[in-house]
Amino acid sequence: MATPISTADVAHVARLARLALSDEELDQFTGQLAAVLAHAADIEALDTAGVPPTAHALPIHNVLRDDVVVAGVDREEVLAQAPAAESGRFRVPRILGEAP
């Protein structure tokens, strides 16, 4: 069984998920996540050697569409929903690094 989840793990995960947690939330979430993961100990212990994972319950493949242009949505309608827009684009605060 994996070692129990720690507050450091939870803080790391919050960072990955772009969430800020107060110290109080951090403690609370650590306990709650630990309880759910402890419940999952039953499947952790299960011998699943040779069992393939199921990502899709559906036995289908090759769902493909023809390469034909279809009208999209109106830019003004979309930008009207944006928190901030400028010059036909979505405006965001400054970006500190290149894309990973």
Binding site: F90, R91, V92
Partner: peptide
Amino acid sequence: IHGADHSLVDY
């Protein structure tokens, strides 16, 4: 990117 005030995104 460095020193920019803000950025604009085109999809």
